[in-house]
């Protein structure tokens, strides 16, 4: 069996390695087992796209907040209580009828953890990282998004330092919705730029 094949279908080798590392690290007092469980719980249950959705919904409702977000996203996001690892320097990109923003990390998988949680597999995949910059329209088509030819697509390549959050366009027919109702329309993909916000009929 070639080593390439072994790694294409993960399992035991890496599982054993992770187990070995964890047990050695605990034995040597380098990591605290309770802290490990806490980290998993935070990123599995408490930090995720629901955070970013609150930021977007507030920006839709509050022009002053949107202004602050566009000028100093890190501070404006912290106002709602989201900050920390992998979100130390945030930049917010606002979509409009003429400009659609889309985010990638061609070199690895940089992603704004405090507002979106951990990245999905496709965001970390070689095809997305390769193609987002060279053929964004065909990438968007794979996500079921078709934009008019007159819409400019801007692709932003994340770095270890700067992380992006897209503010999708506010759907029509949402004038009477509250901020928390609006947040339900904001999907993870719409904040990466591979999707659009949901229309209100979808959640009714």
């Amino acid at each position: 069996m070639s080593s390439k094949h072994k790694h294409a279908h993960p399992p035991s080798e890496v599982e054993l390695k992770v187990k070995a590392l964890e047990s050695l690290l605990i034995e040597k007092g380098l990591v605290d087992p309770l802290a490990l469980d806490e980290l998993i719980d935070i990123y599995e249950h408490r930090v995720g796209p629901q955070n970013g959705a609150r930021v977007v919904a507030r920006a839709w409702c509050n022009p002053d907040y949107l202004h602050r977000l566009l000028h100093n996203a890190t501070d404006a996001i912290r106002e709602i209580g989201f900050e920390g690892r992998q979100g130390e320097d945030m930049v917010v990109l606002e979509n409009s009828p003429t400009v659609h923003n889309m985010v990638v990390c061609t070199l690895c998988s940089c992603y704004p953890w405090p507002v979106l949680g951990l990245p999905p597999v496709w965001y970390k995949s070689a095809p997305y990282r390769a193609r987002a910059v060279s053929e964004p329209r065909s990438v968007l088509a794979e996500f079921g998004v078709e934009l008019g030819e007159d819409v400019e697509i801007r692709v932003w390549d994340s770095t270890a330092e700067v992380r992006y959050l897209v503010i999708p366009m506010r759907p029509e027919g949402t004038e009477n919705l509250s901020e928390s109702e609006l947040a339900e329309l904001v999907t993870r993909d719409s904040m990466i730029g591979t999707g659009l916000a949901l229309s209100p009929e979808v959640i009714q």
Binding site: V18, L25, I40
Partner: peptide
Amino acid sequence: RAFAITVAC
């Protein structure tokens, strides 16, 4: 586990 030990380290 891989995620947690990496972040913790």
